[in-house]
């Protein structure tokens, strides 16, 4: 079997808070993600989902275990990974196009024509071809998040880490964005770690769903999602869809009893 793109082996993370208290955020996390696999992480707030993403991005060094990307231990920040956050966090003083090319500008100090052309193509891909000269505050929340996705895809990273990217959006925009992400991932497959609070969203998007529990954050269950690709609205009408959603809901809530 090929080397997994992302692998976490018995990973733990503890923090020391300001008053000297030790907080165990993650313990014994084992997870591997194959090339072009889409893995969703679901779990209560504070169970360490964002922490896992930061470890994979090399922004945080795990205090136990090994996090590896393409078989190599992650020891410093990686620039071959696309990051999408809950808030779009665009730069308000830059127009949309410059926001998309920002990673290049920030990394190398300059932006060439090829990069700009790529940014335009990505804006077209997320449906914002006509908005390249607008300022972020002229855009709706959903549109801003599309720009943030285009920004994450600028350097055509193989890995995409998305931390609750749609949870700040209204319900309709959310669904629309999920379908859009499906389409983009069909066109240009990526290895994705996707944190969400929405069970239907996870079922629609992911190949596998990791259910976590808190204090310390552990993997409770990993579920395969059986629906064939390409997926779309019809997937949600599959009778299995509700059944699986209920099953996951029980997993999420049973932690209270366990």
């Amino acid at each position: 079997m090929a080397v997994p793109v992302i692998s976490l082996d018995d990973v733990g993370q503890s923090f020391v808070s300001r008053d000297g208290q030790r907080l165990e955020a993650l313990a014994g996390i084992a997870l591997s993600v194959e090339r072009h696999e889409f893995v969703a992480i679901i779990g209560p707030s504070g169970c360490g989902k964002s922490t896992i993403l930061r470890q994979v991005a090399g922004l945080l060094r795990p205090t136990a275990g090994v996090v590896a990307v393409n078989g190599l231990q992650v020891s410093e920040p990686r620039d071959d990974i696309g990051l999408v956050f809950q808030r779009p966090t665009l730069l308000p003083w830059l127009r949309v196009l410059d926001n998309v090319t920002f990673p290049m500008k920030h990394k190398t100090g300059r932006v060439d024509d090829a990069c700009r052309a790529r940014a335009r193509a990505l804006l077209a891909k997320v449906g914002l071809a006509d908005f390249e000269s607008r300022r972020p505050d002229e855009l709706s929340g959903g549109m801003q998040q599309r720009v943030a996705i285009a920004r994450a895809l600028l350097q055509d990273p193989d890995i995409l880490l998305m931390d609750e990217p749609f949870s700040a959006l209204d319900a309709l925009t959310r669904d629309e964005m999920a379908l859009e992400l499906l389409r983009i991932m069909d066109e240009t497959p990526k290895t994705v770690l996707f944190v969400t609070h929405s069970i239907p969203e996870a079922l629609l998007l992911a190949d596998r769903i990791v259910v976590m529990t808190a204090r310390p954050g552990r993997v409770r269950e990993v579920m395969d999602v059986p629906f064939a690709r390409p997926r779309g609205l019809a997937t949600m009408e599959d009778p299995q869809f509700n059944h699986l959603a209920n099953e996951i809901r029980q997993q999420v809530f049973s932690r209270r009893v366990a």
Binding site: A57, L59, D79, F102, P103, K107
Partner: peptide, 26 residues
């Protein structure tokens, strides 16, 4: 400055000067 942008800057391994000139100062 939003923490996410600083993480973005660090993930790009940009020089600190640029973190200040292109993100924090504006």
């Amino acid at each position: 400055t939003p923490e996410e942008l600083i993480e973005l800057s660090r993930s790009l391994r940009a020089p600190r000067v640029r973190e200040f000139m292109q993100i924090r100062l504006p």
